[in-house]
Amino acid sequence: MDKKVTAIIDKYDADRGQLISMLQDIQAEFHYLPREALIQVSETMGIPLSKVYSVATFFKAFSLKPRGRHLINVCLGTACHVRGASKVLEQIERSLDISRGETTNDFKFTLETVNCMGCCALGPVVNIDGEYFGQISAGKVDSILNKYS
C-alpha cells in the first residue's frame, strides 16, 4: 500500500463525501490517477472499485494516463472563443504535433482544454503549469512554448 495515498485518505478521515477531494490530492501528488491508487482508495474506503472508477472518469480534471512535465490548458470559454481561442489551440496542436488530451512522446507537454478559467477579460487565455498567458494569438504560441524545457 502506498503511504502517500494512505496519508491523503487519512487527511479526509476516510469521509466518502470527500472522495473527489482525495482524488484531486492524489492527482496533485502523482500528476495522474495511478490504477493502484484507485484500487487502494476503493479498498480502504469500502467503496466498490467501479464507483471510484466512475467518478475518476466522469470529471474532466482527472487523468488516468500519466501526464507530461508541463500541463498546458487552453481556455475555450465563450469570451476566449469569440476572440479566436480555437486558432490558438490548433497552433499548439500543430507545434507539438499532438491533439487535445494528448501528451508529447517525450512527456514534455500535455495539452488539455478547459471551458473557462475565469480570465474572460483577457481572452484568449492559455495556462501553463498554473501560469496565465493572456491575450494570446496563434502567432505568439511558439515563443511561449519555447520558454519551457
Binding site: 472499485l49 472508477y53 470529471f59
Partner: peptide, 24 residues
C-alpha cells in the same frame, strides 16, 4: 457493483473498472 457507468456525456459507457474483467 462490478460494472458502472463510466466517462461522461457522449462518451459514456457501461463498463467494469479499467475495461478489464472485474474481480467483483
Amino acid at each position: 457493483s462490478a460494472i458502472s457507468l463510466v466517462n461522461r456525456g457522449v462518451n459514456r459507457e457501461v463498463a467494469p473498472p479499467f475495461l478489464e474483467p472485474s474481480a467483483d
